[in-house]
Amino acid sequence: MRRETRETRIEVELDAGGGVKTGDAVFDHMLTAMSFYMGREIRVSAAYDLRHHLWEDTGITLGEELRSKLPERFARFGSSVMPMDDALVIVAVDISGRPYVNLEVSPAESEEGFSTALFREFLWGLARSLRATIHVKQLAGTNAHHIIEAAFKGLGVALGEAVMEGKELKSTKGLLEV
């Protein structure tokens, strides 16, 4: 999947080798961890003007790529409780057709490159294009690196579950607005 604007040029391919090379070392680390815990290889390349645009547009492009590879029937829901050192984060995903993000993280200790604002932009881009509800809640922790990395790992687990092939449509309405 490719997204090109005046601000970014993003390419994302699931189930392909090549690794993550966005030019932002922190983001590369987070996306690599997320794809590992999702159980899917990922190739990401990017050119960008601002980190804000990189994180948001990569979320959009990843959501489009995930959506394009959804099986006809998919599990829909996924969740994870992820520990990492001082951090404990819960992540829940519902690919329901209704984009929404609830991000409740507040690291007491900042660390260079780890920004909750950028993480929020990534999640909203992903939620809009995947048409998913995503909740991320910090249960414990102080270090920004540990909290955000735990959230990306948890997101990987939750997405991996939600996009798996399912036996039936999980909806009391009998359809999903996806």
Rank of each mutant, 00 (worst) to 15 (best):
S110G: 15
E149G: 10
S106T: 03
N102Q: 00
N143Q: 14
I148W: 06
S96E: 05
A151N: 02
A150E: 09
A132Y: 02
S110M: 02
T133G: 05
Y100E: 05
L130E: 12
S96A: 04
A150C: 06
R120C: 06
E109H: 12
N102F: 00
H146F: 14
S106C: 01
V93C: 07
K137R: 15
W124I: 15
E149N: 07
Q138F: 13
A108D: 07
W124M: 15
A151H: 07
A127F: 11
G141K: 15
S115C: 15
A127Q: 10
L118Q: 05
L126P: 01
S110V: 02
T142R: 13
A144V: 13
F152D: 09
G154A: 01
F114S: 10
E149V: 04
A144M: 14
R98V: 03
V91G: 02
R120P: 00
A150F: 06
A150S: 08
E111N: 07
E112D: 11
G113N: 06
A151D: 04
K137S: 09
Q138K: 11
F122W: 13
E112A: 12
S129N: 10
F122V: 11
T116H: 09
R131Q: 15
V93F: 04
F152M: 11
E112V: 13
F122M: 10
R131I: 11
A150Y: 08
S129M: 12
T142V: 12
V93I: 13
K137M: 06
A127N: 09
L126V: 05
S106K: 07
A92I: 11
P99K: 01
G141M: 15
E111I: 12
R131C: 11
R120S: 15
S129V: 01
E149L: 02
R128D: 06
A92W: 09
L139S: 05
Q138G: 04
S129G: 03
R128Y: 10
P99H: 00
A150Q: 09
N143E: 13
K153M: 03
S106I: 01
S96C: 08
F152C: 08
P107S: 10
K153G: 01
A151V: 07
L118S: 04
F114C: 11
S106L: 00
N102C: 00
E112Y: 08
V91E: 07
V91T: 09
P107M: 05
G154K: 00
E104Y: 03
A108K: 14
I134K: 02
P107W: 04
N143M: 12
A92H: 10
G113Q: 06
V136E: 02
G154Y: 01
W124K: 15
V105G: 01
S96V: 02
Y100R: 08
A117P: 03
F114T: 09
R98P: 05
L103K: 00
Y100L: 06
I134Y: 07
E121H: 15
G97M: 10
A150W: 11
H145M: 14
V93P: 07
L130Y: 10
I147K: 12
W124Y: 13
L139Y: 12
K153P: 02
A108T: 13
H146E: 03
V91Y: 07
W124H: 15
G125D: 02
E111A: 07
L126N: 01
